[in-house]
């Protein structure tokens, strides 16, 4: 009730001590931030450099030289990225709204079943899933049987369930008393969804998106089997032709791409997650 009275000296001393501690803490924080933001890109650049030096130091035979051209690798990397970005875009467009719809009061009782299905869907091996979807594309008249479209559709199909599941789990874990307080103050259902449920579910939803992105980079490696291109081509030709430099180049590029995507998604997750959580 009565604030403890301090003499001016001790207050000043305390202030200057706090200032020094503050400055030290700020320096530490800056260093930590530097490592946090630059660590991964530097490591990845290092890996690429090592790969370049290793391949450059090899005597390449004609097959290797033909496969490992800059044009080839850049083209495949671009295809790989395009496949990943398209599939991620479409899966978000589909799975997040569905996750929202599936957690409304009227549909809530189906939520556990859908989440269970999501878990089961992830257990199916990606190649099997891809093959299955391709079979559907092949045998359905009017649908393209090779190229970007079927691959993107397959990737969407494969990452749909994890994102749907994370959206639902994310919305489900929001403290119900926070929502009750919102409703109790006269927020409409739409406002409760936009101002409370979605922002509070963002961390979990984005964790799902991040997983799906990395998953898609990996799964897109199989796209070449169905004429979708990507870095899978290089990996598999290296494998089939027993050319280690080729195999290694393809594999390292995919790994670097996956880690880079994970890193970027992590940054986005950090930016979009509400403060105060």
């Amino acid at each position: 009730m009565t604030p403890p009275s301090r003499t001016p000296e001790t207050l000043d001393e305390a202030r200057s001590r706090a200032d020094t501690e503050d400055a030290a803490a700020r320096r530490r924080a800056r260093r930590a931030a530097l490592v946090h933001y630059l660590g991964m890109p530097v490591v990845l650049a290092g890996v690429l450099l090592a790969l370049y030096l290793y391949v450059g130091g090899q005597e390449l035979d004609s097959i290797e030289a033909r496969t490992l051209t800059a044009d080839n690798l850049i083209g495949q990397t671009r295809q790989h990225i395009v496949l990943t970005v398209y599939s991620t875009f479409f899966v978000l467009l589909l799975a997040i709204p569905m996750g929202i719809v599936a957690t409304r009061p009227a549909t809530r009782r189906f939520a556990p079943a859908i989440i269970g299905l999501g878990n089961a869907g992830q257990a199916i091996p990606s190649l099997g899933m891809l093959a299955l979807l391709f079979y559907v594309f092949r045998t359905t008249p009017g649908l393209p049987s090779t190229g970007t479209v079927p691959v993107v559709v397959s990737l969407v199909g494969y990452s749909f369930l994890p994102i749907l599941r994370n959206t639902m789990v994310g919305l489900d874990q929001v403290d119900r008393f926070v929502l009750e307080a919102g409703r109790g103050m006269g927020m409409s259902n739409g406002l409760v969804l936009r101002r409370l449920e979605l922002p509070l579910a963002v961390p979990v939803i984005l964790a799902g998106v991040r997983t799906a992105l990395v998953l898609n980079v990996g799964t897109a490696t199989l796209a070449f089997l169905f004429g979708g291109g990507g870095l899978g081509q290089t990996i598999f030709s290296g494998f089939q032709l027993r050319r280690t430099p080729v195999l290694l180049t393809g594999a390292v590029l995919v790994a670097v791409l996956a880690l880079l995507v994970d890193y970027l998604a992590g940054l986005i997750e950090e930016k979009l997650s509400p403060k105060g959580l």
């Binding site: 403290d175 926070v178 307080a181 409703r183 109790g184 922002p199 509070l200």
Partner: peptide, 23 residues
């Protein structure tokens, strides 16, 4: 309309239910 009603009634619960993501 319940939302109009609720804006005229203060509501305090044991769990408080502050919005954790805003100031």
């Amino acid at each position: 309309d319940p939302n109009r009603l609720r804006r005229r009634i203060g509501y305090v619960i044991q769990q408080i239910g502050l919005f954790p993501h805003v100031t």
